[in-house]
């Protein structure tokens, strides 16, 4: 079931390109497979870029601040 906001629209939208739907697709008959494909691609890009940024750009950009046994020595 859906709220009835849009259904009663009878006047044209600003978006003249937005024609009324060719067909009504209800909740139960809709599987967003295209979205799954797109978001899957996004996921792969994120994972690849994360590894590249962390292990190539960051770790390869040494020297890096490391923990040290010297910590705290030398300061009064």
């Amino acid at each position: 079931m859906s709220s009835a906001t849009e259904q009663s629209t009878e006047r044209p939208d600003t978006a003249a390109d937005v024609d009324g739907p060719i067909k009504e697709i209800g909740h139960d008959e809709y599987d967003p497979i295209g979205t799954l494909v797109l978001i899957g691609l996004y996921f792969l890009i994120l994972v690849a870029l994360w590894f590249f940024m962390y292990f190539v750009e960051f770790v390869g950009n040494d020297p890096t601040v490391v923990s040290s046994i010297l910590m705290g020595v030398g300061l009064v």
Binding site: S3, A4, T5, Q7, S8, T9, R11, P12, T14, H27
Partner: peptide, 17 residues
């Protein structure tokens, strides 16, 4: 008068209910 589109927002497939 009447030529500006109606003030609506999107309906929902899975609603607040």
């Amino acid at each position: 008068s009447g030529s500006i589109p109606a003030n609506t927002y999107a309906g929902t497939l899975s609603g607040s209910e």
